[in-house]
Simulated scan of single mutants.
Amino acid sequence: MPSVTIKDVARLAGVSPSTVSRVISNHPRISVATVKKVREAMETLGYHPNMMAKSLVSKSTKTLGLVLPRSAEELFANPFFSEVLRGMLAYANQKQYDLLISSANNQQDELETVTRMVLGRRVDGMILMAPRKADPTVEKLLELDFPFVLLGRSLEHPNVLAVNNDNIKASFDATQHLIDQGHTRIGFVSGPPDLVVSEDRLKGYQWALSKAGLPMRDEWVMESDILPKNGFHAVSMVMNLPDRPTAFVVSDDVIAFGMIRELVGAGYQIPEDVSVVGFNNIVLSELSNPPMTTVDIGIYHLGYQAAQHLIRKLQGEEILQTGLTVPHRLVIRQSVRSFIRR
C-alpha cells in the first residue's frame, strides 16, 4: 500500500500542499477553519509528518533535551524527578515539542551527554537540572551559544535563563517555624555540597539561627545525597552527642524519610523526641507516619515554567525577565513538636 503524502492530504482538504505544510508547522496566519479541515484530512488518511525530513529543512527538531543528574536508582527512589518531568511534558506537549531524556551518573557524564545531544543536532534547546558551582555544562552551552534553561540558578552567570525557588528564604521559613515552636537546638541535613541549591538552603538555615541569636554548631550540620539510605546514616552520630538537636531541617523529603526510619529504629519518637521539617512536599510526605511538615516548592510548576521559558526563547520571543521564581509555602503537619504553651 503506497504511503500517504502531503499532496493526498491537500487534495482531500481542498487546499494546496504548501498550506498543508504551513498547518503542520503551526503557521500563525492559517485560519482556524483551514487548520481544522487539514487536520481532519490528515486523520482520515492516517498521515503523519516525516519530522526528520522536516527538521532538515527547518533546522528545528521540535525536541528539548533533558539530562537528569542522577543514576536510574535515584530517579526511581525520589518522586521529585517524576513530578518535575510531568510539568515539563505538560507544556512541551501543548507546544508540540518532544523531550529527549537521558541520565548521568556524574558531572563528566552529564557534560558528555549534553555535548553529544547538542553537537549531534538532536535537540533545539537544553534543560539543566540542579546546577553546580562552576558548572562545566553551563560553561559549555554558553561557549556553544546554545539555548538552555536552568532548573535552579548559576552562581557565575546570574543572567542566564533560569526557573528557581527562593531557596534561601524557603530554608529560612522552615527553620523559623521550628524556632517559633520553641526549638533552640536545630540541626540541618544538606544535599550534595557541590549543588547551588544545597548552599542556598544552608544559608537560609544559618540566617534564621543568626536572626534568632541561636548557635549554629558545625557538628549539627550534615551532608547527604538524595537517597533514603543516606538519611539512615546522616543522623546516627549527631544523635549520640551529649548535646544533640531537638529538631532537624532536612533538604529533601526522601532523606527525611530515611532519617525518621533511623530515629524510630533507635527508639526515638517523632515528634515527641525529635522534630523534622522536610523539603519538596512529595505525595508520600502526607502519608508518612506521622504526616511530615515540609516546604512545598511547586515541583510541577518548576518543570512547567522551565519548558515554557525555553520554548518561548526558541520561538523568538523577547525574554525580559530571564529569572523566574516559583513561590514556596510551608505545609504544617504533625512531625514538629511545639514547646510553646498555648
Score class of each variant (00 low, 15 high):
174 A>K: 01
342 R>G: 12
307 A>G: 10
168 I>A: 15
155 L>H: 13
122 R>I: 00
160 V>N: 11
178 L>Y: 11
244 R>K: 15
152 G>K: 06
22 R>A: 10
269 Q>W: 00
246 T>E: 12
192 P>W: 04
258 G>V: 12
72 A>F: 12
304 Y>V: 05
269 Q>Y: 01
305 Q>M: 15
153 R>S: 11
171 S>M: 04
322 T>Q: 08
176 Q>T: 05
220 W>H: 05
26 N>A: 13
97 Y>R: 00
236 S>C: 01
201 R>C: 09
186 I>N: 06
130 A>Y: 02
288 S>P: 06
143 E>N: 04
322 T>R: 08
14 G>V: 15
303 G>V: 14
51 M>W: 15
120 G>N: 09
26 N>G: 07
197 V>P: 03
243 D>G: 03
32 V>C: 00
61 T>G: 10
58 S>G: 02
87 G>C: 02
150 L>W: 11
206 Q>A: 13
30 I>Y: 06
116 R>G: 04
9 V>G: 04
341 R>N: 04
314 L>R: 03
271 P>M: 12
79 P>Y: 02
188 F>D: 09
338 S>K: 03
179 I>E: 03
131 P>V: 07
78 N>H: 14
333 R>L: 05
71 S>V: 04
116 R>L: 15
137 T>Q: 03
253 D>Y: 10
216 M>G: 08
184 T>L: 09
122 R>G: 08
87 G>L: 01
302 L>Q: 13
271 P>A: 12
147 P>Y: 00
132 R>Q: 12
127 I>W: 02
319 I>L: 05
254 V>K: 09
173 D>M: 10
91 Y>T: 00
224 S>Y: 12
104 A>G: 11
105 N>G: 15
85 L>Y: 04
325 T>C: 01
87 G>K: 01
64 L>Y: 13
258 G>K: 09
306 A>E: 10
306 A>N: 10
280 N>E: 13
160 V>H: 07
42 M>Y: 07
21 S>V: 03
85 L>Q: 07
311 I>A: 04
274 V>C: 04
86 R>M: 03
189 V>C: 13
228 P>S: 10
317 E>N: 05
198 S>D: 06
152 G>P: 05
211 K>I: 01
297 I>K: 01
83 E>R: 13
188 F>S: 14
63 T>L: 06
316 G>F: 05
317 E>W: 07
246 T>F: 08
303 G>K: 12
259 M>D: 09
57 V>P: 00
